[in-house]
Amino acid sequence: MKNFFLFLFFTGMSAPFFSQNPAISGDAFAHTYSIVARDSITGEMAVGVQSHWFSVGSLVSWGKSGVGVVATQSFVNPAYGPRGLELMENGKSASAALNELVSKDEGKEYRQVAFLDNKGNSAAFTGENCVESAMHHAAENFSVQANMMLNDNVIPAMKKAFNDHKTLPLAERVVEVLKAAEAAGGDIRGKQSAALIVVGPEKVENSWEDKKIDLRVDDHAQPLEELERLLKVARAYEFMNKGDVAMEEENVEDALLYYGKAEELFPANLEMRYWKAIALANSGRIEEALPVFREIFAEDDNWREMTTRLPASGLLNVSKEDLNRIVKKP
């Protein structure tokens, strides 16, 4: 029976929500600490998690724009994710949805689960058989939960961090909460993986638009440091995307502004510097663009060849003379 459930799990197939005893025979371990949260101003919702377990984000964090978010951990029953979101989408509150699923779960005493709906209602459950230190704190717009922690200080530290960082964007605020948990003791086994998702306040038409941020660190010596770095990169690329849109709209000044902000966040990235140079050239500021191009080509000459291909696509609008000046080798 155990091998059968393990087969179901590792092949991605679904076992029944109710299982025969032993109720957790095929469930993955994801002993961890996490937060589900909502920004009361923007309406964005997030899940942040860190664990000493490989690829924790593939199991614990679930979310859907305009609906809610779910964290399911300890001895993970992944069904809490999609089924909880379905219940909340159909109008049940976080508490009602969680209670319904917990009442049907024979392995509930091994579970730790948190739901948060799009109105900011949160609910959490910690089974009696979760490994100590295990507890949760559910409040308006957030819930923090942890099991297998080094001590009982983790949850109070997470709660304090969430309340102390109200001015930060939701994603950055969630990272601060995770960092506070780690500083307070964190997982008794150490650290290995982390994840962060953010979904929007309104339902979206296309599934690929659902997650505004979707970051995973599956295996790393310092997963929270890496998660924080990736979030910074993600923010830089948000500016890059805005710059690209501005370029499409032939709004070169806005493109320059956005590309410049991206470069400030991620100055070592050649592509961010490159598209800023392209925007400068397109605005007729060739003399400003030339030294930027030269620095980039010196680091990677493929960008020189790339530049020769852009005029045909309408992405670089300069005279042949200026193009030759840009791509000329020293």
Rank of each mutant, 00 (worst) to 15 (best):
A281W: 05
A134T: 01
S14Y: 10
D219Q: 01
A124E: 11
G120C: 02
E288W: 04
G127V: 05
A195M: 10
A195C: 08
K320S: 15
T167G: 08
N251F: 01
N153H: 15
M13A: 15
L230Y: 09
K166M: 13
G48Y: 09
F239A: 13
N118F: 11
A123D: 11
F239G: 08
E321M: 05
V36D: 10
G63Y: 06
I286Q: 11
D39N: 14
W53R: 12
A183F: 08
K179S: 04
Q112V: 00
A171S: 10
V144T: 02
L98G: 01
V327G: 03
V217M: 12
Q73N: 04
L98Q: 03
V154P: 01
A37K: 00
E305P: 00
A180S: 12
A97H: 05
M240Q: 14
L310A: 03
V144S: 05
F75A: 12
E44N: 14
W208F: 14
D27Y: 12
H52P: 00
A279G: 08
W303L: 00
D152G: 09
V318I: 07
G12C: 03
G185Q: 11
E106A: 14
L116V: 01
N302F: 12
S19R: 15
N163E: 15
R216E: 08
G63F: 06
T32S: 15
F75P: 00
A46Q: 09
I188H: 13
Y258L: 04
V204W: 08
F5Q: 15
K104I: 03
I213T: 12
E209I: 04
S103G: 10
N206M: 13
V245I: 14
A37R: 00
M13H: 13
